[in-house]
Design a protein around this nucleic acid. Structure first.
Lengths: 128, 128
DNA sequence: GTCCCTGCAAAAGTTTTGCATTGCG
DNA sequence: CGCAATGCAAAACTTTTGCAGGGAC
C-alpha cells in the first residue's frame, strides 16, 4: 500500500465515483466531475481512475458494453445484476461457496484468487 | 430460432471462432479469416459476429480487456478463468447452486435468467 | 531545483455507419 | 427484378501517449 498525492482532481474523481449508484463510464465520470471542476482534462480522469483502481479504492468493471469500462465506488467484493432490457446494473452481496473456486482450480490448473459474477435478467421497472 | 443465410464469409467466421481455443477478439478473427478469404472486410466480420451471437451460435465475452470484446465458439453455458499475469483465458464447466441466483433475485428485485462467472488467478505456466 | 501532476492535442485502437456494387433467389 | 450481403472508406468512440507548463515539496 504505497502513498500517492490526493490532488483536487483525483479527489473530485473519487468523489464522483463514490457518490454514483449507476456504475458510470470514464466519460460519464468526466462530465460529472466537470460540473465542479470545468477545466479537468480527459487524460487526467483516465489516469486518476487507473490510479484509484490500482490502489484498490474503486473497482473497474467490464460488463456487457462493447468498448467501454465502468467504475464502481464500492471496493468491497460484491457481484452485479444487469438488466438485459434497460442496461441498469445493481449490486448484489453474495459469496460463492468454496467449492466453486476449488472446482475451477481443479478444472483449469489455475490458482484462483478471486471471482466476479454477473447475473443477467430483467429489473423490476422493466418487468412492470 | 429464425433462419439466415450462411454465406461463405459467415461460415468462415464461424469456423475460425469454433476452431479457436484462445477466445480471440474481432480483429484477431479478421486476420485468421483472411488467411483463407483475403478479401473479407472488417465490417463483414463485425456483422457476422453480431449475427452469430444473436442466433446463439457463439458467445461474446467482455473480460478484463478495456476496449475490445472476445468471442467464444462454445455456445453452451460455461465459465472462464483468466490469468492475471499472461491474460490467457480457460474454460471452466461448473454450475452455480440454485441458491446463488435466488439470492441475487431477492437482493435486487430482478428476475435472473442467466449468469457469467469470471475467475481470476495465475495459470500453471505462469506459476512455474 | 526536481519531480510529479495537469491540460491540451494528437495518435492509436476498436466498432459503427453510409454507400455503391454484387449476386443469390 | 428485388433484396440481402459484401467491401471499402469515412466516421464515431474510447483510451493512450507526448509534451510543455505549473505547482508541490
Amino acid at each position: 500500500v504505497s502513498l500517492f498525492r490526493l490532488t483536487p482532481q483525483r479527489e473530485a474523481v473519487l468523489d464522483v465515483v463514490r457518490r454514483a449508484t449507476d456504475h458510470p463510464t470514464a466519460l460519464q465520470i468526466l462530465n460529472r466531475v466537470r460540473q465542479g471542476t470545468p477545466s479537468i482534462g480527459v487524460a487526467t480522469v483516465y489516469r486518476a481512475l487507473d490510479l484509484l483502481v490500482a490502489h484498490g479504492a474503486i473497482k473497474e468493471l467490464t460488463l456487457g458494453d462493447r468498448g467501454s469500462a465502468r467504475y464502481d465506488g464500492n471496493p468491497k467484493p460484491h457481484q452485479h445484476v444487469r438488466c438485459t432490457r434497460c442496461g441498469r446494473v445493481a449490486d448484489v452481496s453474495i459469496e460463492l461457496p468454496r467449492a466453486a473456486a476449488s472446482a475451477a482450480e481443479a478444472a483449469s490448473g489455475f490458482t484462483v484468487t478471486s471471482y466476479d459474477v454477473q447475473f443477467s435478467g430483467v429489473c423490476a421497472e422493466c418487468t412492470r
